[in-house]
Design a protein around this nucleic acid. Structure first.
Length: 902
RNA sequence: GCCCGCGUGGUGAAAUGGUAGACACAUGAGACUUAAAAUCUCCCGAUCGUAAGGUCGUGCCGGUUCAAGUCCGGCCGCGGGCACCA
């Protein structure tokens, strides 16, 4: 064997796997299947360390399962629609399609050197017409199943770019590109009826026991189940048809504290009044100002307007409450109308204070009940007041019992009924953009909205579009919109909205089971491969993508595209942490008016590339060598007095004082997610070129638990590479041993191997890759110090190669082949530890006296408790510490510890 | 405001209630070398002690237990998610 050179062995083994079709997934009914999936990437053009970590994790699982005899599906694809492609087209010309496919080619070329066990024959991009055509077909099926509808919805509208903006694209109430104030506009949009599944999506979370608790909780909160009372107020002075006003409340126990009612500006009653009352119309204009973003809502002032309409308190018709239109009442939650109880709700309190409304208290301190009620509350018939009295005090504070009783009471006197509401709203999927899946419907003057005929699918995006003017190119395309109505054959217009890209990613996992089929899925393939056994990705998708996918799987089941067993598509979910890296940051302050004018001080924060940073010591200035520049590390603070930024052109031998004048002081400022703006990105390409894929893979899996962030450090990467070189050298040494070499440590080595097999297996099974790697270090150290026969050493290092294979497949194959392993290491059966070898003959037991460790004894594993006790009490150190004190108690935990209590 | 998670050496971290700090990084000392790099060896929580060994130590305060990083209660700090949701 020569020197460890990943640039030679890595391409070699990748070519061999490729040629052998090692990772091609086959539907093999004689074997159990295992489907590993990592969240597919957006083709931005470059892979980053986060991708490396994500795909390596999946690869470890896939390779491990393959060695265990499973028929493994481990595919890769591209989440390829979306705005960045259109933005690129707008900024530098060109076509989104060309940009996207070029990026895919670049990223695939970057991913292949990682040696992932991916079945590339199943690769697809969501922008392939073969993919989005199937999506359109399912959309039509979903329309037929009543899961799709159109309605008017309020959106962020950018009047300059003439497009709808996502909330994230609205910054300080302005469009992120145009900088124009965003308007709230009501547009007719397409929706998926995800709310039909609110109850089921919530209750089924309980069954997802292999999902992180955190993700299940986040989804549960997002779905937002609440139990309350819905009832109708009787109105007075309201227009015809509005003699009742439905409200929903989760606090029926505070109903006695009602002080006003309020309706949403979008409530039918408000809209009715708007048409007849100019004052109301003016007020509604006021309400509609500002965006729909969270920030805009939070900062918006709570405003209301008295409509003059009154409602009667359901417990006492003598009490009249004013009806306000209030901008904080949402039309799409509950009934779009509320009652306000200022005494027990902060927002209602603020509102009541602002508009001078009474603040009657329902609950008062023990003993002060009568006084408080008569003083603060609008007069009410006493027997009705009485029903809540029983809940005053501690029992009441818990809420649950009081709410249940209040609902029961209200139902018994005919005031409304108990109702369950969900926060989850229907999924608006319309996007006024080009680079997305066209919504396959046609607008016909006679037939209305008609789905496109399936034989005309896919509805392809036209290629001849330009992005030189704002707006949706589909909308202004000269011919694309024109079509014939599939129903009556008359001239008609195509829908120009495209689907939210989250739709594309809501079913790709199912498509991987039959990626080239002419139907969305194929029953036998879906039945065999679904569900995804292990899904791996970032926690940032905890809600939207994972919730949409759960909905979509149900919709696909309803429309016959997935079996009922696949309505929860991901059996197990793992959310991995980010790869972070140190940041070099400088902070300068200067004042425009004078050095001491703090008010006018301007603070400038700048980030620096590692290669722009120099270390200053007494000796002068030190710099990176080339390798350090590549791997992204500069200096530890301890090595130098301070760090300064310099222009790269500055000579490194320049005088210390000169540099000091020109450079800005830089701090190594913690560690953050790699990003261009923080100038702390480490490029996987360069790491692979410098150290090899195995080093990159091993490093991102070691040290930190996979669910936590891991900091990329050059020293860590170098150390990993050194370790792999040591393993290589060890292999070389063992390989060159004489065949008849003998040693005394064979039995110990066999035990150590068994223990390594057991512990590494446990580590991988439990997603504790950092621990598995720690055990591999231990085993390597044991092996390199072992004094054993040549055959035992060879056997042990083959085992080491197998255990390393999921993490570092290339070096593992080389070792395996060199040491006479049969076939490929990747497909060799995973080693099994003989349980008998995991138990040692003797063990060391610590002895505690009153809980403090004072001695230890070595005993045979099968020694009885009474014998151990005797031995322990006879121990010299124990005798010394006891100093003749009487023993109160002695506790022997077999195999663990002895504790003597005096 | 509501919900959740996490606090262990200089650093990343281990530890079914049972020897706290496995494994690794960094630092330090040494070997080899004319020298450097590479490689190898040793030390590496704090403190007292020449040593043997002692004492303290898992954010803080208390509790349960023969035994607490781990379980319970209360604080403090950090991080994440949701938020006009009636």
């Amino acid at each position: 064997m020569s020197r460890y050179d990943p640039t030679i062995i890595e391409p070699k083994w990748q070519a061999i796997w490729d040629a052998a079709g090692t990772f091609t997934a086959v539907r093999d009914l004689s074997r159990p299947k295992y489907y590993v999936l990592e969240m597919f990437p957006y083709p931005s053009g470059r892979i980053h360390m986060g991708h490396v970590r994500n795909y390596t994790m999946g690869d470890v699982v896939a390779r491990y399962k393959m060695a265990q005899g499973f028929s493994v599906l481990h595919p890769m694809g591209w989440d390829a629609f979306g705005m960045p492609a259109e933005n690129a087209a707008m900024e530098r010309g060109g076509h989104p399609k060309d940009w996207t496919y070029a990026n895919i080619a670049d990223m695939r070329a970057q991913m292949k050197p990682l040696g992932l066990s991916i079945d590339w024959s199943r690769e697809f991009a969501t922008c392939d017409p073969e993919y989005y055509g199937q999506q359109q077909s399912m959309f039509i099926d979903m329309m037929a199943a009543g899961l799709v509808y159109r309605k008017a919805a309020v959106v962020n509208w950018d009047p300059v770019d003439m497009t709808v903006l996502a909330n994230e694209q609205v910054i300080d109430g302005k469009g992120w590109r145009s900088n124009a104030p965003v308007e709230r506009r009501e547009l007719t949009q397409w929706f998926f009826k995800i709310s039909d599944y609110s109850a089921e999506l919530l209750s089924a979370l309980d069954g997802l026991t292999n999902w992180p608790e955190k993700v299940r909780l986040m989804q549960a909160n997002w779905i937002g189940k609440s139990r309350g009372l819905q009832f109708a107020f009787t109105t007075t002075g309201a227009p015809d048809g509005f003699d009742r006003l439905d409200v929903y409340t989760t606090r029926p126990d505070t109903l006695l504290g009602a002080s006003f009612a309020a309706i949403s500006p979008d409530h039918p009653l408000a809209k009715h009044l708007e048409r007849h009352d100019p004052a109301v119309a003016a007020f509604l204009v006021e309400c509609r100002k500002g965006g729909t973003t969270a920030e805009a809502m939070e900062t918006a002032e709570k405003i209301g307007m008295d409509t003059g309409i009154r409602v009667l308190h359901p417990f006492d018709n003598a009490v009249e409450l004013p009806v306000y239109i209030a901008n904080f009442v949402l039309m799409d939650y509950g009934t779009g109308a509320i009652f306000g109880c200022p005494a027990h709700d902060q927002r209602d309190f603020d509102f009541a204070t602002k508009y001078g409304l009474p603040i009657p208290a329902v609950f008062v301190a023990e003993g002060a009940e009568d006084a408080a009620l008569t003083e603060a509350y609008v007069p009410m018939k006493s027997e009705r007041v009485h029903f809540m009295r029983g809940f005053a005090g501690a029992e009441f504070q818990t809420g649950e019992a009081a709410i249940t009783a209040a609902i029961a009471h209200c139902e018994s006197i005919g005031v409304g009924r108990g109702v369950t509401n969900y926060r989850l709203r229907d999924w608006g999927i319309s996007r006024q953009r080009y680079w997305g899946c066209p919504i396959p419907v046609i607008h016909c003057d006679t037939c209305g909205v008609v789905p496109e005929a399936k034989e005309n699918l896919p509805v392809r995006l036209p290629d001849d579009v330009t992005f030189d003017i704002p707006g949706n190119p589909l909308d202004r395309h000269p011919t694309w919109r024109n079509c014939t109505c599939p129903k009556c054959g008359a001239g008609a217009r195509r829908e120009t909205d495209t689907m939210d890209t989250f739709v594309d990613s809501s079913w790709y996992y199912a498509r991987f089971t039959a990626p080239h089929a002419t139907t969305p899925t194929v029953a036998e393939d879906a039945a065999y491969w679904m569900n995804v056994d292990q899904y791996i990705g970032g926690v940032e998708h905890a809600i939207l993508h994972l919730l949409y996918s759960r909905f979509f799987a149900r919709a696909m089941n309803k429309t016959g595209h997935l079996p009922a067993s696949a309505i929860e598509p991901f059996n197990a979910l793992f959310t991995q942490g980010m790869v972070t890296h140190g940041i070099y940051r400088s902070v300068t302050t200067k004042s425009a008016t004078g050095p001491n004018d703090e008010a006018a001080m301007i603070i400038t924060v700048k980030y620096h590339f590692p290669e722009e940073v120099e270390g200053v010591t007494d000796e002068g200035v030190t710099s990176f060598d080339k390798k350090e520049g590549i791997v992204g590390r500069a200096f530890l603070k301890s090595e130098v007095d301070e760090l300064i930024s310099v222009t790269p052109s500055l000579e490194r031998n320049d005088a210390y004082s000169a540099l000091r004048l020109e450079g800005t002081k830089v701090d190594v400022f913690s560690s953050a997610k790699m990003s261009k703006s923080k100038k702390n990105v480490v490029d996987p390409d360069k790491i692979i070129a410098a150290f090899g894929a195995d080093t990159a893979r091993w490093f991102v899996m070691s040290d930190s638990p996979p669910e936590r962030d891991v900091e990329w450090t050059a020293s860590g990467a170098e150390a990993t590479h050194k370790h792999l070189s040591r393993v290589w050298a060890l292999c070389d040494r063992i390989g060159s041993m004489p065949a008849d070499h003998q040693g005394t440590g064979d039995a110990d080595l066999v035990r150590a191997s068994a223990r390594a097999v057991h512990e590494v297996t446990q580590g991988i099974e439990g997603f504790a890759f950092n621990k598995a790697i720690a055990k591999l270090y231990e085993f390597t150290n044991t092996l390199s110090k072992a004094n054993a026969s040549s055959s035992a050493m060879k056997q042990a290092i083959r085992t080491l190669a197998q255990l390393m294979q999921p993490m570092t497949p290339h070096i593992a194959e080389s070792i395996w082949a060199y040491q006479g392993g049969a076939g490929l290491c990747a497909t060799a059966a995973w080693p099994v530890a003989d349980p008998a070898l995991l138990i040692a003959d003797t063990m060391t037991l610590p002895i505690q006296i009153n809980g403090k460790r004072r001695a230890e004894i070595s005993v045979p594993v099968d020694m009885t408790v009474s014998e151990i006790e005797k031995l322990a009490l006879a121990d010299q150190d124990v005798v010394r510490f006891l100093a003749g004190q009487p023993i109160k108690k002695i506790i022997v935990v077999p195999g663990r510890i002895i504790n003597v209590v005096v």
